[in-house]
């Protein structure tokens, strides 16, 4: 006999059981991601081509505006490669943050009618985001070949910076999704963060254009470290500042706290949605 025991208790939240339950629902995680992808381009003529057009258009605007117009100095690295490398991680982050942030509210019907670990919903967005991220990476490889830029040993660090980007996106997304359900105010914070974040993160410009005395502010933005680090691992150049370790450590702490907070209000979500 299988030993499935469910305990429903008004007072206690069993965190370990929560993670076992999440593991049991791993197929649902991929199913939700698959549904999002399947639905996203349903009834569009161009379908997946949209996943290509969007980064291409942004890249074009950046290149014309900052590369040709304002002429930002990116050292030996051609501007389009520089911008695309930054954009790929930033777009992934902003996608996961905004989609995960809104995910609980927009799944209200499911939450009110069925049980499953609610964490599956924001987590699935991190998987969906990888599709667009993959498309942008292919682009980047194409540009590297076109500009004949060879990767260096730094490339070994790439998985680390990608992982940090996933954690950053999920941290903000999970906090926002849990907070939005209690305080609708946070719904309005999301577009604001996407927009402001793009300027506060060295996506279109290198961190070196920031005056030395304001650099410490950058250390507060973990995505600045992730973007710089990602770019460094692909293109070489200046390594990310030592402050980035603190930013990442801070994110990991917030990530754990976010999951704890999410789990704490998980069982009231059906009443609040």
């Amino acid at each position: 006999m299988r030993n499935d025991v469910t305990v429903i208790d008004a007072e206690k939240t069993d965190y370990a059981e929560g993670f076992r339950d999440l593991f049991r629902h791993r197929e649902l995680l991929f199913m939700m991601a698959w549904r999002d992808l399947r639905v996203r381009y349903a009834q569009t003529v161009l379908g997946l081509v949209w996943a290509v057009i969007q980064p291409l258009a942004t890249l074009l605007v950046f290149t014309l505006l900052f590369g040709r117009g304002i002429k930002i100095d990116t050292g030996s690295i051609p501007y389009p490669v520089f911008a695309l490398a930054g954009m790929s991680v930033w777009s992934y982050f902003s996608y996961v943050m905004s989609q995960a942030g809104n995910s609980i509210i927009s799944s209200g019907d499911m939450i009110k009618k069925t049980y499953f670990p609610r964490l599956v919903i924001p987590l699935s967005k991190a998987i969906v985001g990888f599709v667009d991220f993959g498309v942008t990476l292919l682009f980047l490889v194409g540009l590297l070949v076109a500009y004949r830029i060879a990767p260096t040993i730094n490339l070994l660090w790439l998985p680390f910076y990608v992982a940090m980007t996933v954690v950053c996106g999920l941290t903000v997304g999970i906090w926002l999704s849990a907070l939005t359900i209690r305080f609708r105010d946070f719904q309005h914070v999301i577009p604001f963060m996407v927009q402001l974040g793009l300027y506060a993160t060295p996506v279109a410009y290198p961190a070196s254009v920031i005056p030395e005395k304001y650099r410490f502010l950058f250390a507060l933005n973990p995505m600045a470290a992730a973007v710089e680090g990602f770019r460094w691992s692909v293109l070489g150049g200046e390594p990310p500042s030592s402050g980035s370790h603190y930013a990442f450590a801070g994110v990991l702490v917030l990530f754990v706290l976010g999951i704890r907070y999410f789990r704490k209000i998980e069982f009231s979500m059906a009443d609040l949605v």
């Binding site: 305990v7 429903i8 008004a10 939450i111 009618k113 069925t114 049980y115 059906a270 009443d271």
Partner: peptide, 10 residues
């Protein structure tokens, strides 16, 4: 397990 009781146990 959709919602949590205010009191009690099951």
């Amino acid at each position: 397990r959709i919602t949590r009781p205010t009191r009690g146990r099951a």
